[in-house]
């Protein structure tokens, strides 16, 4: 079968987009341009690593801000997760990540004692605006990339490209032709030349999170705002759901919250690898693990 393949760097990672159909040169160029624009637009709103992004502006000044049309589902997900986790899962973690050293310049040195995040429930938002009683640095690192994958899925379907595989640095959304499964290796976070098992993905999203990749001093990119430390018990997580935002967000959440609590609200399948290399996988995950 003919395929169209795009490979590029964006939001700090390597992307590989495969469209399972043959496209002529003009269509390929147009499609790649439109996808790139979608990603750039997303970063201008939600990336705290861009100094002029919406979230960077919100970190400087209190007030009411207009939101892009796609903001509400993302904020709603964070709100639901914030309630479910009793405040542990929050986009207001941005300031704490910066204080710990995970800032836009990657200083990776703790600047000050970590201060508790602003309570997310005190941020009022509607479909098109959000009001900040004080400056708050929002971080959408937990579910933002997954949500971006979902937005690209909607775009591709609207443009009549039904079969594709999106891979944003190891977070995947796959929609193959009937019966075509994707054979996915589950990366060993301690050795990137290895995989710990294989999952056959029929369709939907598979996202992962690992604590020992973006790591400095005593921290990695996930910090629990209540303990003010990075979780160490979990080494890596994988979550499979039909929606990438959920898969991405829940993969992060499994570092902070027991799966039973998350399962009380969401349907998802997961694999957790603990720091002693023991594992826990939901019955529907069905990965073949090497042991």
């Amino acid at each position: 079968m003919q395929q169209t393949k795009f490979s590029f760097e964006a939001i700090g990672t390597t992307w590989q987009i495969d469209i399972f159909e043959e496209l002529n040169q003009a269509k390929r160029v147009k499609l790649l341009r439109e996808i790139s624009e979608l990603i750039e637009l997303f970063e201008r709103s939600y990336s705290r690593f861009q100094s002029d992004s919406l979230v960077s502006q919100m970190a400087k000044q209190a007030g009411r801000y207009n939101l892009p049309a796609d903001a509400k589902p993302l904020l709603d997900f964070y709100k639901a997760m914030n309630q479910l986790s009793k405040g542990i899962f929050t986009p207001c973690i941005g300031q704490m990540l910066v204080e710990a050293g995970y800032d836009a310049n990657y200083s990776l040195a703790q600047k000050s004692p970590l201060t508790s995040p602003f309570p997310f429930e005190k941020l009022a938002y509607t479909n098109d605006s959000i009001s900040l009683p004080k400056p708050v640095l929002l971080d959408f690192g937990a579910a933002g990339k997954g949500y971006l994958l979902d937005l690209i899925v909607v775009f591709l379907e609207r443009e009549k490209h039904p079969y594709f595989c999106l891979d944003a640095g190891g977070d995947i959304f796959y929609q193959g032709q009937k019966g075509q499964k994707l054979k996915v290796g589950l990366e060993n976070p301690a050795n990137l030349e290895q995989v710990l098992g294989i999952l056959e993905l029929e369709q939907g999203s598979l996202c992962s999170s690992a604590g020992n990749r973006r790591k400095w001093n005593n921290f990695h990119h996930i910090i629990n705002p209540q303990t003010k430390s990075s979780p160490t018990k979990v080494l890596a997580t994988w979550v499979k759901t039909p929606q990438a935002m959920l898969a991405d967000g829940l993969a992060t959440a499994l570092f902070l919250i027991e799966p039973e609590i998350l399962e009380s609200k969401y349907h998802f399948d997961y694999l957790i690898v603990y720091n002693d290399y023991t594992t826990r996988q939901s019955t529907g995950f069905k990965a073949k693990l090497f042991n």
């Binding site: 700090g12 990672t13 390597t14 990339k145 595989c165 891979d167 944003a168 640095g169 190891g170 977070d171 995947i172 796959y174 994707l182 054979k183 996915v184 290796g185 589950l186 990366e187 060993n188 976070p189 301690a190 050795n191 990137l192 030349e193 290895q194 995989v195 710990l196 098992g197 294989i198 999952l199 598979l206 996202c207 992962s208 999170s209 690992a210 990749r213 973006r214 890596a236 994988w238 690898v273 002693d276 290399y277 023991t278 594992t279 693990l289 090497f290 042991n291």
Partner: peptide, 20 residues
């Protein structure tokens, strides 16, 4: 306990991991 297996030995379509 799980152990790693070299990617070279396996025929895979994709590798899912923490973001690069």
């Amino acid at each position: 306990q799980v152990i790693g297996k070299s990617i070279d030995q396996l025929k895979l379509d994709k590798v899912a991991g923490s973001s690069l």
